[in-house]
């Protein structure tokens, strides 16, 4: 019996050692340790032994079982690791093959530019006000101190729907509507599409986009205007950007100023883009004309404010280096997909 047990043990351990797959090991386990396995057969045959020998043999069988079980376990683990390694090796991919993806669209460069500008102003506490594109003459002109007989009407070539209704030439009517409906403090930007019957060329389009700003509160000064525009310029084009105000004229502001930014292309040294001047004219601005405040029901003795207007198209073209405004409205995918 001893001898038989010893043979079973030796053979089983040798088989475990030689096994080359987890399946083979499983076979060994069943053959030796299973319910009908060799070791079990020995246990079952113990009845034929002398009673005094039984515990001893029983112990030997259990020892052999433990030894074989642990050998199987160890070998299984080793083989499983090997097999996994082999599988992983076989599964290696060419990671440089392009990914599988659903196509993504893109925002129009005008929208991208608008978002960037809008974020800057929203960060400074502005809210966004909107209004109609086809607008009353009185909101677009009269209440902005541009009565019918004002020579400044010639500054803006206007599309008319009738005597009293125009395609808005700027988003300033939204400012008027805001002043009429809201008490100061007011801090808004009014973005949107505007219309001018200009001749169309590389820098002029009958339709373009603006962001105008309006701030009204007690004690607002032209220094606040400079401050806000300076922050805007630095956020948009970087900390080194300088702003310069030049006297100008808009009927709805007094004093009025054109705002130049140091050229983003050359940093102010002078280049082709700034035509050698080092500056790029990008904004119109000024202190809100007291007459406008009065017409909109705000007491100019108590409140003051400033306003400014920026062309989004111009900023967009400068940002992306687009040379012709008409490209923005053609929507050629070879163009749209670049940004």
């Amino acid at each position: 019996m001893n001898e038989k047990l010893s043979i079973i043990r030796e053979e089983a351990l040798a088989a475990v050692k030689a096994a080359s797959s987890t399946a083979e090991l499983n076979d060994i386990r069943v053959r030796v340790l299973g319910k009908k396995g060799e070791l079990t057969a020995i246990l079952r045959s113990m009845g034929s032994l002398a009673p005094e020998d039984r515990p001893k043999v029983g112990q030997m069988v259990n020892e052999a079982r433990a030894e074989i079980e642990s050998a199987v376990e160890a070998r299984t683990a080793a083989l499983a690791a090997q097999e996994r390694d082999a599988r992983l090796k076989a599964e290696a991919l060419d990671v440089t093959i392009p990914g599988k993806k659903r196509p993504l669209g893109k925002l129009h460069p005008l929208t991208q530019t608008y978002y960037e500008m809008r974020d800057i102003f929203v960060g400074m506490g502005f809210t966004v006000a909107e209004g109609p594109e086809v607008e009353y003459d009185k909101y677009n002109f009269t209440m902005l101190n541009i009565p019918k007989d004002h020579p400044a009407r010639d500054m803006q070539d206007t599309f008319y729907v009738n005597d009293d209704i125009v395609l808005r030439t700027h988003t300033s009517p939204v400012q008027v509507r805001t002043m009429l409906s809201q008490k100061p403090p007011i801090r808004i930007i009014s973005p949107g599409r505007v219309y001018r019957s200009d001749d169309v060329d590389a820098t002029h389009s009958p339709i373009f986009n603006q962001i105008e700003g309006l701030v009204i509160d007690k004690g607002v000064t032209m220094a606040d205007l400079r401050g806000v525009l300076d922050v805007f310029a630095k956020e948009l084009y970087g900390e080194h950007t300088k702003t310069r105000l030049r006297p100008s004229y808009f009927p709805f502001t007094e004093p009025s100023a054109e705002v130049d930014l140091s050229c983003m292309a050359c940093g102010g040294k002078g280049c082709r883009i700034c035509k050698g001047s080092g500056w790029i004219e990008i904004l119109g601005s000024g202190m809100v004309n007291p007459k406008v405040l009065e017409m909109c029901g705000i007491d100019p003795e108590v409140y003051s404010g400033f306003a400014f207007g920026i062309g989004i198209d111009r900023v967009c073209n400068a940002k992306f280096g687009i040379s012709d405004i008409r490209l923005l409205y053609e929507n050629d995918l070879r163009f749209l997909s670049q940004f």
Partner: peptide
Amino acid sequence: GYDHIPLTLMRGDLSRGRLT
């Protein structure tokens, strides 16, 4: 000269700048 106008930031109540 507009260059002599200082640069300040608006004072007043904190306003909530956000989109609708």
